[in-house]
Design a protein around this nucleic acid. Structure first.
Lengths: 137, 137
DNA sequence: TATTGTTATACTCTATAACTATA
DNA sequence: TATAGTTATAGAGTATAACAATA
């Protein structure tokens, strides 16, 4: 299972979809997480997607530079900065996911019915994942 | 389609499977290619998987260090070096693919029958890809 | 003293450019 | 002079460690 990931096709599809909107997969993953839980402290973002806090700083810096997300102060704790998407961030995420949904060329090996079947199975897995579900919802 | 790649689950599964045998995905992809066409010149390997020749040098260096592949002189052209797997290389590739075939935890969202269905669809795609087909038999 | 976020730094994987040897 | 492979260098993406501000 998942030998497909080694084909380069799948990776290429992912990178092209993200690249078309000027982002890389880490950015899109972040946009999905922020959409799911807007106003979350940066520390919580690091916990959610199991990376270091410094990487959250990097990603949020880059999303802010592109006008896709904004930092906001926390009401009662001045150490904390929360993150939310801008309208442009929402649009950009939607566009990236749209591109991602298009079947990659390697799926030409399947009939149209099989492609639908595969998509339904993948959607079912996505629906069980909190982040994916929120973004694809 | 392929939003799954963003979950981290799929990437994590791939990296864990490769990491368990001390390799990264690029190495495993190389082992698959070499198994498919043993004795290919390094230049041809670069063409096959669409990367620069220098990266082939790097990967083959690392496979040789680990005793998984060997360079051999070409019969009639002394510029050319061909590459073949060692017995250990074959075993290591088989082990990596075995790990890769185990369904990742995110597949728990599917019934056993659905998991089989999904595996069959992915295998059908793999069978249409020359490299994947050779390695997965 | 513990926690949030940042800065500085380093590591992994891959690409580009300059080079050597052979054809 | 063209081609095969290597070496040296650089880049993207991500992690680790030291730090500043606040609790």
């Amino acid at each position: 299972m998942f030998e497909l990931l080694l084909s380069g096709e799948a990776q290429g599809h992912l990178h092209r979809a993200c690249g078309t909107v000027g982002l890389h997969p880490g950015h899109v993953k972040a946009l999905m997480q922020i959409k799911r839980e807007p106003g979350l402290p940066m520390r919580a973002l690091a916990d959610r997607w199991a990376c270091d806090a410094s990487y959250v700083t990097t990603i949020v810096d880059e999303l802010e530079e592109r006008g896709l997300a904004t930092r906001h102060p926390h009401a009662s704790d001045r150490r904390i900065k929360t993150v939310a998407l801008t309208a442009n961030g929402v649009r950009t995420l939607d566009r990236a996911l749209e591109l991602l949904y298009e079947p990659p060329s390697s799926f030409g090996a399947l009939t149209a019915a099989e492609q639908r079947e595969l998509r339904d199975l993948l959607r079912k897995i996505a629906a069980a994942d909190p982040v994916l579900d929120a973004a694809t919802g």
